[in-house]
């Protein structure tokens, strides 16, 4: 019994992260902000360092607070550079995260250089450890802390998306129309970015950066190839995420390798399948129709 709980919790947590990120990812890739997750994974460093200096401790809460603030700051700076500065979106992302990361490294180096507080050390979790980190026990069943946190995260994200669906949808697909009818594009942008910051930082803590960046982009992109109907895209991206977690986990077992790496690889496999075989947008479908 002990072992299927191992598998179960890891796959469940992977799926929860997958769903939270995939939903947000659908909006991100349609808004051409796919790389924001990768950017945030680098740019949180100064936030962690400053939080450590201010509080003197490296507790989870301090680190998360520092990281989330930087996540928000990152998206704010990117937006400023893009809208006010006239810098193209992808370049704005690159400029912002490289600068913030550099500042973080300098802060660490300048202060004795011996601090072991890079994000790989203090923020990024490892999905394999999730079953070991017990949060509470209900009816004799040990529930890992991350399962609780990630469930709450998923609930929060899906509620936000559900409640804000119209605003998010309109500002993603037809920002001019949205502006015309009084739906504030800027507000929705920042709401989405706040949700992304929160989701990424919390997920980093649970499963590490590799998986989060992958979950933000690949399932949504796969779903994008499979359907034209946006709600279906949201659903399909979740399904792809769950399937990847499931198959990736067993691949990792088989190879005795990194679970995060295996899940990312499986996401790639599913994407390739969709790329080739998607009924309307797939490579073969296009070749056959011309």
């Amino acid at each position: 019994m002990d072992f299927w709980f191992n598998d179960f919790w890891i796959i469940l947590c992977g799926s929860l992260v997958a769903m939270s990120c995939a939903i947000l990812g659908c909006f991100l890739i349609l808004r051409k902000m796919a790389m924001v997750g990768d950017a945030i994974s680098h740019s949180v460093l100064p936030g962690i360092v400053v939080a450590f200096f201010l509080s003197g401790s490296l507790s989870s809460w301090t680190v998360m607070l520092g990281a989330t603030s930087l996540g928000l700051l990152t998206t704010f700076i990117i937006e400023m550079l893009n809208k006010r500065g006239g810098v193209q979106a992808d370049a704005a992302i690159g400029l912002t995260f490289t600068f913030l990361f550099a500042v973080g490294v300098i802060l660490i180096a300048a202060n004795s250089g011996n601090l072991h507080i890079d994000q790989d050390c203090v923020l990024h979790g490892e999905i394999a450890y999730i079953p070991l980190d017990i949060g509470t026990t209900i009816a004799g069943i040990e529930i890992p802390r991350q399962a609780i946190i990630l469930s709450v995260l998923f609930f929060v994200i899906s509620t936000l998306v559900y409640l804000g669906y119209r605003g998010l949808f309109l500002t993603t697909f037809d920002p001019e129309y949205a502006d015309a009818i009084g739906v504030k594009t800027t507000t929705w942008h920042y709401l989405l970015m706040a949700a992304v910051s929160l989701a990424t930082v919390v997920s980093f803590e649970s499963v590490g950066a590799i998986l989060v960046v992958a979950f933000l982009i690949v399932p949504a992109a796969t779903a994008y190839l499979l359907t034209d109907h946006f709600p279906s895209m949201l659903l399909l991206s979740c399904v792809v995420g769950i399937l990847s977690s499931f198959t990736g986990y067993y691949l990792a077992v088989y190879l005795d390798g990194s679970i995060a790496g295996a899940i990312s690889t499986m996401m790639g496999v599913f994407f390739s399948l969709a790329f080739l075989f998607a009924p309307k947008h797939g490579y073969l479908a296009k070749r056959l129709s011309t």
Binding site: I29, V213, L216, A221
Partner: peptide, 24 residues
């Protein structure tokens, strides 16, 4: 070959290749 834009394509390649690398 698809309607996926450049930034998403970059992200897909980045995360999948890197994940494969970590697995290896």
């Amino acid at each position: 070959n698809t309607r996926i834009k450049t930034d998403a394509a970059l992200g897909i390649v980045l995360s999948v290749f890197f994940g494969l690398g970590i697995l290896l």
